[in-house]
C-alpha cells in the first residue's frame, strides 16, 4: 500500500500499521476537538493562536502517548541484558545532551550573569531532559515487557 505519508512510517509492517492507526485516531480526535473548540468559541473568546497551538499539542501528545505506551519502539529488547544495555545508552544520551546543550548555550548564546539566568537555563534544561528521559524510559519498559511475553 503506497501513500505519500510512507516516508514518515517505519519499514516493518506491524509498526507501520500501528503508526497508521495512531495517526488516524489522532486525526479523528483532532477533528472532534476542533468542533468542540468551534462551539466553545461561541461562548468564550478563545484566541485563534491559542486554538491552533492547543490543536497541535493535542495531536502530538495523543499520537506520542499512543506510540510510547504501545511498546513498539524498542523491538529487539527482549532480554534483561539488552534492557540494561539500552537503559545505559539512554542515560548516556541524556547526559551528553545536557552537557553539550549547556556548553553550546554558554558559548554561543549567552553566559548567564545572574543566578536568575542560571536558574532559568537549568530549569528549562531539566524539564526537557526529564521529559525526554521519562518518555524514552516508559517506552523502553513497555517494549521490554511486550517482547519478553512474545519470546515465551
Amino acid at each position: 500500500m503506497k501513500t505519500w505519508i510512507s516516508f514518515l512510517l517505519p519499514d516493518d509492517e506491524y509498526k507501520e500499521k500501528k503508526m497508521l492507526h495512531f495517526l488516524a485516531e489522532g486525526g479523528f480526535l483532532l477533528f472532534l476537538f476542533l468542533i468542540g473548540m468551534t462551539i466553545l468559541n461561541q461562548f468564550y473568546n478563545i484566541g485563534s493562536t491559542t486554538t491552533l497551538l492547543l490543536s497541535i499539542l493535542f495531536f502530538i501528545v495523543y499520537v506520542g502517548a499512543r506510540y510510547i505506551l504501545s511498546g513498539i519502539e524498542y523491538t529487539d529488547v527482549a532480554t534483561d541484558k539488552a534492557y540494561k544495555r539500552e537503559l545505559k545508552l539512554l542515560i548516556t544520551k541524556t547526559t551528553s545532551f545536557v552537557i553539550i546543550f549547556t556548553l553550546l548555550y554558554v558559548v554561543f548564546v549567552e553566559f548567564p550573569s545572574t543566578w536568575g539566568g542560571w536558574f532559568e537555563l537549568l530549569g528549562m534544561l531539566f524539564t526537557v531532559t526529564l521529559l525526554w528521559f521519562m518518555t524514552s524510559f516508559i517506552s523502553l519498559k513497555r517494549s521490554y515487557k511486550k517482547n519478553k511475553d512474545l519470546m515465551s
Partner: peptide
C-alpha cells in the same frame, strides 16, 4: 526469532506477534 525476522525483513517483535497469533 531474530534470524527469521532478519530473513524476511521485519522486526523480531513482529515475528513474536505472528507466532502468538496476535498479528
Amino acid at each position: 526469532q531474530e534470524q527469521l525476522a532478519r530473513k524476511v525483513g521485519v522486526t523480531r517483535q513482529t515475528i513474536g506477534l505472528i507466532e502468538k497469533g496476535e498479528y
